[in-house]
Amino acid sequence: MKRLLARDWWIWAVLPVMVVALYFDFVGSPNDVTLGASARILYFHIGSATVAGVAFTITAIASIGYLIQRTLTWDIWAAASAEIGLVFTTMLLVSGTIWGRIAWGAWWTWDPRLTATLILWVIFAAYLLLREWSDNRARRATVSAVIALIAYIDVPIDYMTIRWWRSIHPVIFTNQGINMPISMQIPMFISMGAMTLVFIVWMAVRMRLMRAELGVGDLKNAIRARIEGQ
């Protein structure tokens, strides 16, 4: 047990939550009246959407934080969050196309919602690519922060597309409440919680790795300075 504790036990807390989410998605909830079993795709879809939105929001906040305070911790937050957000956006798009094939009969339509989400994916993929192409840490952090803030503009637009325009994408969260029966809300919120937990743990792990990378960079510079000094 002590060995397990020393080996970062907290990561194991994700497993039972994952199992509970899977149980409620596939066993503990009824089939939808019109959509049938295909509604079960949506639980993960909504969870991924929530996490992607939260992740990109954290990236934007951390970018503002970096521009004000200029500490690399903010940059690590922004980068890790954008990476994980991109993974969840990918899951969102994939689960969305599968559901669209069943409900709408087409893998993809150029609906405002779908278009905005795809643009979001492309912009943040570009953001992450650009991060890889710069070697000066401080400059990379500043440019990335500015680009992240430009890219973030699409997130609120994406959220509002189905409310502003006539879109074929269903609206679940409205001003009048949640457009879903209670028996389906339970698995939805449990999936959302599970995905959020995965996001939190992933963030912790990823940021730890990034700090280790920074440590390696520092060490490399120190050794280089020593060799050049001799």
Binding site: I119, I123, W133, S134, D135, I147
Partner: peptide, 17 residues
């Protein structure tokens, strides 16, 4: 930036959509 042209094009196209 070192790869200014790539940065410019990669971000410009999706944002211009």
């Amino acid at each position: 930036l070192k790869s200014a042209e790539m940065v410019f094009m990669l971000l410009l196209f999706p944002l211009e959509i």
